[in-house]
Protein backbone atom coordinates (compact mmCIF):
# COMPACT_ATOMS: atom_id res chain seq x y z
CA UNK A 1 0.00 0.00 0.00
CA UNK A 2 1.67 3.18 -1.08
CA UNK A 3 -1.07 5.42 0.30
CA UNK A 4 -0.50 4.09 3.82
CA UNK A 5 0.22 6.57 6.56
CA UNK A 6 2.45 4.14 8.38
CA UNK A 7 4.01 1.24 6.59
CA UNK A 8 6.24 -1.14 8.51
CA UNK A 9 8.07 -3.66 6.38
CA UNK A 10 10.13 -6.59 7.59
CA UNK A 11 10.95 -4.98 10.91
CA UNK A 12 13.24 -7.01 13.15
CA UNK A 13 14.32 -5.82 16.56
CA UNK A 14 16.79 -7.89 18.50
CA UNK A 15 17.87 -7.57 22.09
CA UNK A 16 21.39 -8.55 22.96
CA UNK A 17 21.29 -10.13 26.39
CA UNK A 18 23.73 -12.32 28.31
CA UNK A 19 21.42 -15.28 27.55
CA UNK A 20 21.81 -14.73 23.84
CA UNK A 21 20.10 -12.71 21.14
CA UNK A 22 16.43 -12.16 21.93
CA UNK A 23 14.39 -11.78 18.76
CA UNK A 24 11.74 -9.53 20.23
CA UNK A 25 10.33 -8.59 16.85
CA UNK A 26 10.96 -10.68 13.75
CA UNK A 27 10.08 -9.55 10.21
CA UNK A 28 6.97 -7.67 11.21
CA UNK A 29 5.02 -5.95 8.47
CA UNK A 30 2.05 -3.74 9.20
CA UNK A 31 0.38 -0.80 7.59
CA UNK A 32 -2.10 1.80 8.71
CA UNK A 33 -4.10 3.97 6.35
CA UNK A 34 -4.85 7.59 7.28
CA UNK A 35 -7.66 7.72 9.82
CA UNK A 36 -7.69 3.98 10.32
CA UNK A 37 -7.44 2.16 13.65
CA UNK A 38 -5.25 -0.88 13.74
CA UNK A 39 -5.45 -3.06 16.82
CA UNK A 40 -2.27 -4.89 17.68
CA UNK A 41 -3.03 -7.80 19.98
CA UNK A 42 -1.04 -10.54 21.57
CA UNK A 43 0.04 -11.74 24.96
CA UNK A 44 2.71 -10.16 27.15
CA UNK A 45 6.15 -10.35 25.61
CA UNK A 46 4.97 -10.99 22.06
CA UNK A 47 6.65 -7.85 20.78
CA UNK A 48 3.72 -5.44 20.57
CA UNK A 49 5.31 -2.78 22.69
CA UNK A 50 8.71 -3.10 21.09
CA UNK A 51 7.11 -2.67 17.67
CA UNK A 52 5.49 0.57 18.77
CA UNK A 53 8.65 1.80 20.45
CA UNK A 54 10.42 1.21 17.14
CA UNK A 55 7.83 3.39 15.42
CA UNK A 56 8.59 6.33 17.71
CA UNK A 57 12.31 5.54 17.68
CA UNK A 58 12.51 4.80 21.39
CA UNK A 59 13.73 1.22 21.43
CA UNK A 60 16.11 1.16 24.40
CA UNK A 61 19.54 0.80 22.93
CA UNK A 62 21.59 -0.94 24.16
CA UNK A 63 20.45 -3.71 24.49
CA UNK A 64 17.89 -3.29 21.70
CA UNK A 65 18.82 -2.98 18.04
CA UNK A 66 16.73 -2.65 14.94
CA UNK A 67 18.45 -5.11 12.67
CA UNK A 68 16.28 -5.03 9.58
CA UNK A 69 13.27 -3.47 7.96
CA UNK A 70 11.87 -0.07 7.28
CA UNK A 71 9.24 2.06 8.95
CA UNK A 72 7.71 4.43 6.43
CA UNK A 73 5.68 7.26 7.85
CA UNK A 74 4.08 9.46 5.23
CA UNK A 75 6.46 7.89 2.74
CA UNK A 76 9.57 8.65 4.75
CA UNK A 77 11.73 5.95 6.35
CA UNK A 78 11.91 6.79 10.04
CA UNK A 79 14.77 4.39 10.61
CA UNK A 80 16.95 6.46 8.29
CA UNK A 81 15.88 9.81 9.71
CA UNK A 82 18.35 11.74 11.85
CA UNK A 83 17.56 12.09 15.56
CA UNK A 84 16.58 15.73 15.26
CA UNK A 85 13.95 15.25 12.57
CA UNK A 86 12.68 12.17 14.42
CA UNK A 87 12.26 14.34 17.48
CA UNK A 88 10.24 16.81 15.44
CA UNK A 89 7.95 14.03 14.27
CA UNK A 90 7.42 12.66 17.78
CA UNK A 91 4.72 14.57 19.55
CA UNK A 92 3.97 16.60 16.43
CA UNK A 93 3.02 13.97 13.83
CA UNK A 94 2.92 10.92 16.07
CA UNK A 95 1.37 11.17 19.51
CA UNK A 96 1.77 8.50 22.10
CA UNK A 97 -0.30 7.37 25.08
CA UNK A 98 1.23 5.14 27.70
CA UNK A 99 -0.21 2.32 29.74
CA UNK A 100 0.32 3.65 33.24
CA UNK A 101 -1.24 7.05 33.78
CA UNK A 102 0.15 6.96 37.31
CA UNK A 103 3.76 7.10 36.21
CA UNK A 104 3.59 8.72 32.80
CA UNK A 105 3.18 12.20 34.24
CA UNK A 106 5.99 14.06 35.95
CA UNK A 107 5.03 14.37 39.63
CA UNK A 108 6.71 17.75 40.14
CA UNK A 109 5.26 19.66 37.18
CA UNK A 110 1.75 21.03 36.97
CA UNK A 111 -0.75 19.45 34.60
CA UNK A 112 -0.96 22.69 32.63
CA UNK A 113 2.74 22.85 31.95
CA UNK A 114 2.87 19.24 30.89
CA UNK A 115 -0.06 19.49 28.53
CA UNK A 116 1.23 22.75 27.08
CA UNK A 117 4.75 21.44 26.63
CA UNK A 118 4.35 19.92 23.14
CA UNK A 119 2.88 23.21 21.89
CA UNK A 120 5.88 25.15 23.11
CA UNK A 121 8.33 22.54 21.86
CA UNK A 122 6.83 21.95 18.43
CA UNK A 123 4.75 24.94 17.45
CA UNK A 124 6.85 27.59 19.16
CA UNK A 125 3.85 28.96 21.02
CA UNK A 126 4.39 31.29 23.94
CA UNK A 127 3.81 29.74 27.32
CA UNK A 128 0.68 31.75 28.14
CA UNK A 129 -0.83 31.04 24.74
CA UNK A 130 -0.03 27.34 25.12
CA UNK A 131 -1.60 27.29 28.57
CA UNK A 132 -4.80 28.75 27.21
CA UNK A 133 -4.94 26.09 24.57
CA UNK A 134 -4.08 23.44 27.16
CA UNK A 135 -7.11 24.55 29.19
CA UNK A 136 -9.33 24.15 26.14
CA UNK A 137 -7.94 20.67 25.61
CA UNK A 138 -8.47 19.63 29.20
CA UNK A 139 -12.05 20.68 28.70
CA UNK A 140 -12.20 18.71 25.48
CA UNK A 141 -11.06 15.50 27.19
CA UNK A 142 -13.84 16.22 29.73
CA UNK A 143 -11.88 17.10 32.78
CA UNK A 144 -14.28 19.03 34.99
CA UNK A 145 -13.41 22.68 35.71
CA UNK A 146 -10.50 22.37 33.32
CA UNK A 147 -9.07 25.85 33.71
CA UNK A 148 -8.60 25.42 37.44
CA UNK A 149 -6.85 22.10 36.91
CA UNK A 150 -3.98 23.71 35.04
CA UNK A 151 -2.18 24.38 38.28
CA UNK A 152 -2.88 20.94 39.75
CA UNK A 153 -0.19 18.33 40.20
CA UNK A 154 -0.61 14.75 38.93
CA UNK A 155 -1.11 13.28 42.41
CA UNK A 156 -4.22 15.41 42.81
CA UNK A 157 -5.92 13.61 39.92
CA UNK A 158 -7.40 10.14 39.70
CA UNK A 159 -6.13 7.50 37.32
CA UNK A 160 -8.86 8.11 34.78
CA UNK A 161 -8.28 11.86 34.87
CA UNK A 162 -4.58 11.37 34.40
CA UNK A 163 -5.22 9.20 31.38
CA UNK A 164 -7.39 12.00 30.00
CA UNK A 165 -4.50 14.36 30.58
CA UNK A 166 -2.23 11.96 28.69
CA UNK A 167 -4.68 11.93 25.81
CA UNK A 168 -4.74 15.71 25.75
CA UNK A 169 -0.94 15.78 25.73
CA UNK A 170 -0.73 13.27 22.91
CA UNK A 171 -3.40 14.91 20.76
CA UNK A 172 -2.77 18.58 21.36
CA UNK A 173 -0.55 19.00 18.30
CA UNK A 174 -3.12 17.18 16.16
CA UNK A 175 -0.89 14.27 15.20
CA UNK A 176 -1.60 12.18 12.10
CA UNK A 177 -0.99 9.00 14.07
CA UNK A 178 -1.78 8.17 17.65
CA UNK A 179 0.09 5.29 19.21
CA UNK A 180 -1.68 3.98 22.27
CA UNK A 181 0.15 1.33 24.26
CA UNK A 182 -2.48 -0.45 26.36
CA UNK A 183 -4.15 2.86 27.23
CA UNK A 184 -6.88 1.30 29.34
CA UNK A 185 -5.17 -1.68 30.93
CA UNK A 186 -4.53 0.13 34.20
CA UNK A 187 -8.10 1.41 34.47
CA UNK A 188 -11.24 -0.22 35.70
CA UNK A 189 -13.83 -1.40 33.23
CA UNK A 190 -16.24 1.52 33.35
CA UNK A 191 -13.41 4.00 32.92
CA UNK A 192 -12.04 1.86 30.13
CA UNK A 193 -15.21 2.40 28.13
CA UNK A 194 -15.22 6.13 28.71
CA UNK A 195 -11.59 6.52 27.76
CA UNK A 196 -11.98 4.38 24.65
CA UNK A 197 -15.00 6.29 23.43
CA UNK A 198 -13.22 9.57 24.14
CA UNK A 199 -10.27 8.42 22.09
CA UNK A 200 -12.52 7.23 19.28
CA UNK A 201 -14.35 10.54 19.28
CA UNK A 202 -11.21 12.67 19.14
CA UNK A 203 -9.73 10.38 16.54
CA UNK A 204 -12.68 10.86 14.20
CA UNK A 205 -12.79 14.57 14.86
CA UNK A 206 -9.12 15.11 14.05
CA UNK A 207 -8.95 12.35 11.43
CA UNK A 208 -6.08 10.71 13.25
CA UNK A 209 -5.00 7.16 12.57
CA UNK A 210 -4.45 4.97 15.59
CA UNK A 211 -2.22 2.09 16.45
CA UNK A 212 -3.85 0.51 19.48
CA UNK A 213 -1.84 -2.01 21.40
CA UNK A 214 -3.74 -4.25 23.77
CA UNK A 215 -4.09 -7.76 25.01
CA UNK A 216 -7.80 -7.26 25.47
CA UNK A 217 -9.76 -8.62 22.53
CA UNK A 218 -12.87 -6.88 23.77
CA UNK A 219 -11.17 -3.51 23.45
CA UNK A 220 -10.10 -4.36 19.92
CA UNK A 221 -13.56 -5.43 18.90
CA UNK A 222 -14.92 -2.15 20.19
CA UNK A 223 -12.41 0.22 18.63
CA UNK A 224 -10.32 -1.18 15.83
CA UNK A 225 -11.06 -1.42 12.13
CA UNK A 226 -8.38 -3.95 11.46
CA UNK A 227 -6.49 -6.27 13.78
CA UNK A 228 -3.01 -7.70 13.67
CA UNK A 229 -2.33 -10.63 15.97
CA UNK A 230 1.22 -11.03 17.18
CA UNK A 231 2.81 -14.15 18.55
CA UNK A 232 6.45 -14.61 19.59
CA UNK A 233 7.61 -11.48 17.80
CA UNK A 234 5.72 -12.05 14.55
CA UNK A 235 2.45 -11.00 13.07
CA UNK A 236 0.61 -14.29 12.61
CA UNK A 237 -2.61 -12.89 11.27
CA UNK A 238 -3.96 -9.59 10.07
CA UNK A 239 -7.53 -8.93 9.00
CA UNK A 240 -10.55 -6.70 9.42
CA UNK A 241 -12.18 -6.92 12.83
CA UNK A 242 -15.37 -8.61 11.65
CA UNK A 243 -13.81 -11.32 9.49
CA UNK A 244 -11.20 -11.98 12.16
CA UNK A 245 -13.70 -12.48 14.93
CA UNK A 246 -16.13 -14.34 12.67
CA UNK A 247 -13.59 -16.66 11.18
CA UNK A 248 -10.10 -16.65 12.66
CA UNK A 249 -7.66 -18.37 10.32
CA UNK A 250 -4.52 -18.88 12.33
CA UNK A 251 -4.71 -21.62 14.97
CA UNK A 252 -3.31 -19.17 17.53
CA UNK A 253 -6.03 -16.62 16.84
CA UNK A 254 -8.59 -19.40 17.06
CA UNK A 255 -7.16 -20.43 20.41
CA UNK A 256 -7.20 -16.83 21.65
CA UNK A 257 -10.83 -16.31 20.71
CA UNK A 258 -11.85 -19.57 22.29
CA UNK A 259 -10.07 -18.57 25.48
CA UNK A 260 -12.29 -15.53 25.87
CA UNK A 261 -14.88 -15.90 28.60
CA UNK A 262 -18.37 -15.36 27.20
CA UNK A 263 -21.54 -14.35 28.91
CA UNK A 264 -24.03 -17.16 28.96
CA UNK A 265 -21.51 -19.74 27.85
CA UNK A 266 -22.28 -21.74 30.95
CA UNK A 267 -19.91 -23.07 33.53
CA UNK A 268 -17.02 -25.32 32.81
CA UNK A 269 -13.37 -24.76 32.32
CA UNK A 270 -12.23 -21.96 30.06
CA UNK A 271 -10.41 -23.03 26.95
CA UNK A 272 -6.66 -22.68 27.12
CA UNK A 273 -3.86 -22.97 24.60
CA UNK A 274 -1.56 -25.78 25.78
CA UNK A 275 2.13 -25.15 26.30
CA UNK A 276 4.03 -21.89 26.69
CA UNK A 277 5.45 -19.26 24.38
CA UNK A 278 8.97 -20.13 23.20
CA UNK A 279 11.67 -17.87 24.67
CA UNK A 280 12.78 -15.11 22.36
CA UNK A 281 16.30 -16.46 22.59
CA UNK A 282 15.35 -19.92 21.32
CA UNK A 283 16.71 -20.75 17.87
CA UNK A 284 14.20 -20.49 15.05
CA UNK A 285 13.24 -23.73 13.43
CA UNK A 286 9.85 -23.83 11.85
CA UNK A 287 6.75 -22.01 13.01
CA UNK A 288 7.08 -20.68 16.58
CA UNK A 289 3.55 -21.84 17.32
CA UNK A 290 4.12 -25.37 16.04
CA UNK A 291 4.75 -26.80 19.51
CA UNK A 292 1.33 -25.67 20.76
CA UNK A 293 -0.66 -25.93 17.55
CA UNK A 294 -3.38 -28.59 17.34
CA UNK A 295 -3.08 -28.73 13.54
CA UNK A 296 0.70 -28.72 13.22
CA UNK A 297 2.20 -31.07 10.66
CA UNK A 298 5.74 -31.89 9.50
CA UNK A 299 6.35 -28.77 7.53
CA UNK A 300 5.41 -26.52 10.46
CA UNK A 301 8.29 -27.89 12.49
CA UNK A 302 10.71 -27.59 9.57
CA UNK A 303 10.01 -24.30 7.81
CA UNK A 304 9.16 -20.88 9.11
CA UNK A 305 5.93 -19.63 7.51
CA UNK A 306 5.70 -16.07 6.20
CA UNK A 307 2.78 -13.69 6.24
CA UNK A 308 0.88 -14.32 3.00
CA UNK A 309 -2.24 -12.76 1.65
CA UNK A 310 -5.01 -15.32 1.45
CA UNK A 311 -8.60 -14.85 0.35
CA UNK A 312 -9.44 -11.18 0.03
CA UNK A 313 -7.52 -8.78 2.19
CA UNK A 314 -6.59 -11.31 4.79
CA UNK A 315 -3.08 -12.13 5.77
CA UNK A 316 -2.00 -15.14 7.73
CA UNK A 317 1.30 -16.75 8.49
CA UNK A 318 0.52 -20.44 8.56
CA UNK A 319 1.30 -23.41 6.35
CA UNK A 320 -2.33 -24.51 6.53
CA UNK A 321 -3.08 -21.68 4.15
CA UNK A 322 -0.06 -22.11 1.87
CA UNK A 323 -1.03 -20.36 -1.38
CA UNK A 324 0.63 -23.09 -3.43
CA UNK A 325 -1.94 -25.58 -2.20
CA UNK A 326 -4.76 -23.06 -1.89
CA UNK A 327 -6.53 -24.33 -5.00
CA UNK A 328 -6.80 -27.76 -3.48
CA UNK A 329 -8.32 -26.33 -0.32
CA UNK A 330 -12.07 -25.78 -0.14
Amino acid sequence: MSDALLDIRGLSVHFHTPEGVGRAVESVSLSIAPGETLGLVGESGCGKSVTTLAVVGLVPSPPGRIVAGEIRFQGRDLLKADPESLRRIRGREIGMIFQEPMTALNPVLTIGRQVAEPLVAHLGMSRSEALKKAARWLDRVRIPSAASRLGAYPHELSGGMRQRVMIAMAMICRPRLLVADEPTTALDVTLQRQILSLMAELKTELDTAMLLITHDLGVVAQTAGRVAVMYAGRVVECAGVRPLFAEPLHPYTQGLLQSMPRLGAGRGRLHEIPGTVPAATDPIGGCPFAGRCPSAFDRCRRDDPVLETVRQKRQVSCWLYDPSKQEADP
Binding site: L58, G91, F98, Q99, T103, A104, P107
Partner: peptide
Protein backbone atom coordinates in the same frame (compact mmCIF):
# COMPACT_ATOMS: atom_id res chain seq x y z
CA UNK B 1 13.69 4.48 33.42
CA UNK B 2 10.36 6.02 34.41
CA UNK B 3 7.44 6.40 32.08
CA UNK B 4 7.29 10.16 32.15
CA UNK B 5 10.77 10.36 30.68
CA UNK B 6 9.70 8.06 27.83
CA UNK B 7 6.54 10.13 27.55
CA UNK B 8 8.57 13.32 27.28
CA UNK B 9 10.71 11.72 24.59
CA UNK B 10 7.63 10.47 22.78
CA UNK B 11 6.34 14.04 22.91
CA UNK B 12 9.43 15.10 21.02
CA UNK B 13 11.21 17.05 23.70
CA UNK B 14 14.90 17.68 23.48
CA UNK B 15 17.17 15.69 25.78
CA UNK B 16 18.56 18.78 27.45
CA UNK B 17 15.05 20.02 28.16
CA UNK B 18 14.08 16.60 29.50
CA UNK B 19 17.02 16.64 31.90
CA UNK B 20 16.36 20.20 33.00
CA UNK B 21 12.60 20.00 33.39
CA UNK B 22 11.94 16.38 34.22
CA UNK B 23 15.05 14.93 35.81
CA UNK B 24 16.59 17.73 37.86
CA UNK B 25 13.49 18.75 39.81
CA UNK B 26 12.86 15.12 40.67
Amino acid sequence: GLDYISAARAAGQEEVAIIRRHVLPN
